[in-house]
Each structure stands twice: as structure tokens, then as C-alpha cells.
Computed example of a mutant assay.
Amino acid sequence: MRWWPALQVLALHFVLLMGLERKVALPERVASYPAQLLGLLRPEVFTQVGPQVLLTGAYLLGGLLLAWFLVVGLARWGRAALWFMEGIPPFLLLVLGGWAGVTYTVSRGLDFPLTPWSPVMLGLYTASLALPVAARVALATGQVRREALDADYTRTARAMGLPEKTVQVQARRVALPERAAGLGGDALALALALVIMEGILQFPGLGNSVYIALQGTLSGTGDAVARAGTDDLLPQQTLSAALLLWLLLGSLATLFLQWLAAQLDPRPRSGEEMH
């Protein structure tokens, strides 16, 4: 069903928004949802969250790209090390990276660049997001690669004189779809981790927009929420827009990586002939 992913995003958005506004009576929350959903079309809402989605999207894209390439290097590590690395919380990695950066720069009389688009912040965010996911995907792709090397068709190819280098290349090719699918399965979780980190650190991004809007929502009253069409609804609309854009970022990344996994799959598709 073509519209099913969009309906899933809207359903999750509705559930999250209803759950975050628990101080307001449920009928009022449901009644105000259409106005909150359309809040992204208001210039004052879009002006606030539009630039933030670019920053959060850049961090997410950077994390996914870094994880893609890290999988290659981590595939050589032992499984025990990968199990340990996949369990490290991204926030802890970010804090450790920030501490190391501050220690290194301040001790030398330098200013630590913490502006949103600085290379240091881009590097810290993307690395903290990528490392645990890359370790988890490396475990999965390593298993697929080993299964491909132990498969009957691989033994047959070796018996027929196929060079070992070619066998290894084909095994890695078989594991490529698993790499894309594994990252796709973690894309929404990566986006959530990123938003949480931005909110906790109050660093520019969708997470900070969610945090600020949520504070305004919680400080309001049910009557204010019910008065749709007034400026009293602005915090709710900003919260709704930030949540929706976060879900769209994670969902689009997931859909793209799922599509990429299908394209990288070396097995013939239905209706195709093997050459």
C-alpha cells in the first residue's frame, strides 16, 4: 500500500503528541490535533523549526554515512569487542568527546568551537551516533558473510577453481544488503537518540525545539490549548511540527536504506533471469 508509511508516521505522531500533553483533557487534545498538525504551515512555526530540521538532518545523515564506512573496519574486530561497543549509549560518547575536546583546546588557550555547524560538533554528534550502530551492524553482516562462505554454492565454486579472492568479494557483496537493512532498521532510533541529545544539551536542533515547545505546553492550560486559531496554540503547533519533522527524517532514512538494500541484493529478482 503506497500510503501506508505516511499513515504510520501520522499515527505515531498522533500517539506521541497525545502522550506528551497529558495535562490537557483527552477530548481537548484530540479536538486540537488537526490545528496542531497544520501548524507547520504557519510562517512563525516554520521559521522556528525549519532551520533546525536542516541541522538535525545533517547530523543524522553524517551518522549514517560514518556508520556505513565504520562497518568495514569493525568487521575485523572480535565479537566480544563489538558486543561491548554496541551497548555504549550515544550520549555517553558525546559527553566523553566533548570533555576530550574541551580539555585539549582550553589547555592550549584555544576556544572550543561549539557552534551548530562547527566541524567539531558535527564530528562529535556523528561519531557518537555511528559507533554503537556500526558495531551492531558489523555483527550482523559478519554473520551473513560467514554463512555465505560456508554455503554449498561457495564450496562448489571453490571446487571448480574459482579464486579465493573472488569468493571473498562475492561473500562481501552478499552482506551489503544486510548492512543497508541494518542501518535502515536503526535510522528511526538514531533520530530519536539525536533529538534526545539535542534536548538534554539544549543544543540547536529539533530536540531543542521539542524541549522549548514542551516547556511552553506544560506551562499552559487546557483552555489555552482548546482556543485553536490563537497565539496560545503556538507552543503546541511548534511541538507538533518538530515531532513530525523528526519522524519524517527517521522514516525517510529508513525507506531509503530499505530501497538501497533491495538494490544491492545480488540475488535475481522475480522475473529476472540469471546470467
Rank of each mutant, 00 (worst) to 15 (best):
Q8A: 14
V9S: 00
V9L: 15
A11H: 06
F14E: 05
L17T: 11
E21H: 14
L26E: 02
E28V: 08
V30I: 14
S32I: 00
Y33N: 00
P34M: 05
P34T: 03
A35H: 07
A35R: 02
Q36T: 02
L37F: 15
P43R: 03
V45M: 05
F46S: 04
T47L: 03
Q48F: 14
Q48Y: 15
V49C: 05
V49A: 04
G50A: 09
P51V: 00
G57Y: 11
L60I: 01
L64K: 10
L65R: 08
A75T: 10
G78F: 05
G78V: 08
R79A: 12
A80W: 14
A81T: 14
A81R: 10
W83T: 01
P89T: 05
V95N: 07
L96N: 10
T103L: 14
S107C: 04
L110A: 11
L110E: 13
T115N: 04
G123P: 10
A127W: 13
L129A: 03
A130E: 08
A130T: 04
L131Y: 15
A134K: 03
A138F: 01
T141Q: 05
G142Y: 03
A148Q: 06
L149G: 04
D150L: 13
A151I: 01
D152I: 06
Y153Q: 09
T156E: 10
A157Q: 11
R158D: 02
A159C: 02
M160I: 03
L162T: 13
E164P: 05
E164L: 07
E164D: 12
K165E: 12
V169L: 13
A171Y: 09
R172V: 00
A175L: 04
L176Q: 15
E178N: 01
A180Q: 13
A181V: 00
G184I: 03
D186L: 07
L188N: 08
A191F: 11
L192D: 12
A193G: 10
L194Y: 15
L194I: 12
L194D: 12
A213R: 02
L218Q: 15
L218H: 13
G220C: 02
V225Y: 08
G229F: 09
T230S: 13
D232N: 07
L239R: 08
L239T: 02
S240Q: 03
A241H: 04
L243V: 05
L245N: 08
L247M: 09
T254W: 15
L255N: 10
F256A: 15
A261S: 15
L264R: 14
D265P: 04
S270N: 08
S270V: 12
E272R: 10
M274Q: 09
